[in-house]
Structures are given as structure tokens and as C-alpha cells.
Nucleic acid binder design. Structure first.
Lengths: 120, 120
DNA sequence: CCGCATCCGTTACGATACTG
DNA sequence: CAGTATCGTAACGGATGCGG
């Protein structure tokens, strides 16, 4: 998978494949989801999501998504504390994709995962 | 990630998270993509896609996607050879999601991946 | 405290060789 | 040609530590 320093290793010229080179891991899309839902989110906010990402992975993903300009940091108080992230315009345009995924899962995964909830 | 025998480990009750528990890896969505584009696809067809999935991962993913009824096997000649796969109705409904991902990548990833092509 | 880097054990992936 | 076995590599996950 991609890291922030070395850039992304593009597997092919296919746009779908390229999207997955960036977002095709266990966590990136969930970070986007949290920001779609809540607008802004701090580091510890992300950690409290029910899927429980670990701290090192979170820091790595935030760095990569920031490099690719899907998210950006906003300084709430000019110190290094209480930093938050929000979606850029680019990242925000993933919203319909996530909504489509969610709707698909609700109808087609119920059979295998009975206690799934609605939105998000 | 999920394997075919043990079932999927659902990280939460969130539909988006659940969709990603199934499809949130480097390869599953590309298998769906190939089937969306070509209709049917044999084992060796998949291997020839430009991203070059390896044989063991392919077998694993095909098994899982079959268990979850996103794809199904069609026997072209009743032997174990020349088997092919196609999308079920459930899998086919991922098409708009993939198209959305592709369109998003085309507009927002160009800056980082200059020789990306159109569809797909 | 909060953000995040580091260390380290565990799990998933990936290339290739191999079997029916 | 479809699928498995093996084994090295990379990603993940938890614990912990350190600076601001």
C-alpha cells in the first residue's frame, strides 16, 4: 500500500484501479466516512469510532490523505492540540460513492450481517 | 481481512464499514470491475488484467465473493476446466459505485497520476 | 492530556513452484 | 488450466514513550 513519503505505487492506468491504490485499504474510506458524517474530526475523535483504528495506522493514513489533498488540517487553537481535519472539495466528492456503498450493503449484506444498522 | 471459511469479521454495524469489510482490499473491487466490463471471466482471464493479481489471492477472493453471492460460477463444459465467473444481481448492483469511483479518480487523481486513461 | 513516532509480534499479501 | 503450498515481505495492531 501507499505511504506518504514514497508516493503511491500505481498498479495500472485504470482510474478504478488508481482509486483503489489510494483508498483500497481497511481504513482510508472509513476516515472519509467519519468526515462526511461529522464535518470535522480530531485525531482522538477518529480513534473513538466503533471500528477502532490503531494510532500508528491513523497517523499514517491522515498523512497520506493530506498529501493527496483529500483532507486538510485546520488549527482550532494555533497550538498543536485540538487539531482537526476536514474534507477538501476533492475528498467531499467521494460522498456519493460512500452513500452508494452504504445503500448497497444495507440491501445485499443483511443476509450475512443481521444486526447492521441504517445510516451510516 | 475476511477469508471464505471463517466468514467475515464485521468491524461494526455500520453499512459502509460492512461493505468495506467485504470489498475494502486491493483486489476484490477489481475482480468486480473485470466482470462489470467483460460480463464473464475465467480464472486465467483475471490473471491477465494489467494489475497482475497473484494466483493464491485470486482463488481466495473468488471463493469469498462466491460465498457472499456477489459472483457465481458458470460451468462452460462440466469439467473443472474453462470455468468462468459472472456477477450475480447483487454484485451487478455495485456497478454505479465503481463508476463513481472511476469518475472521481479521473478528475481528482490526475494531478498525481498523469497517464491515467479513461474508462477504465 | 493529546498528537504521534517507535518497537515488535502477528497476520495478510505476493511471487513462484508445483500438483491434478 | 484451475487451484494449492511454500516462504519471504509488507501491512496491521497493541503497547509504550516522548514532546508540546
Amino acid at each position: 500500500m501507499a505511504t506518504s513519503e514514497d508516493g503511491v505505487n500505481w498498479r495500472s492506468k485504470c482510474p478504478i484501479s488508481s482509486a483503489l491504490d489510494v483508498l483500497g485499504d481497511k481504513w482510508s474510506m472509513l476516515i472519509i466516512r467519519d468526515l462526511v458524517i461529522h464535518g470535522t474530526r480530531t485525531y482522538s475523535d477518529f480513534l473513538q469510532s466503533p471500528e477502532h483504528i490503531s494510532t500508528n495506522i491513523l497517523a499514517l493514513r491522515l498523512k497520506l490523505l493530506t498529501c493527496l489533498k483529500l483532507i486538510e488540517r485546520i488549527n482550532l487553537d494555533a497550538s498543536s492540540r485540538n487539531n482537526a481535519f476536514r474534507l477538501t472539495k476533492s475528498g467531499a466528492e467521494l460522498r456519493p460513492v460512500l452513500e452508494g456503498l452504504g445503500r448497497w450493503a444495507q440491501t445485499h449484506l443483511k443476509e450475512f450481517h443481521s444486526d447492521m444498522v441504517k445510516i451510516p
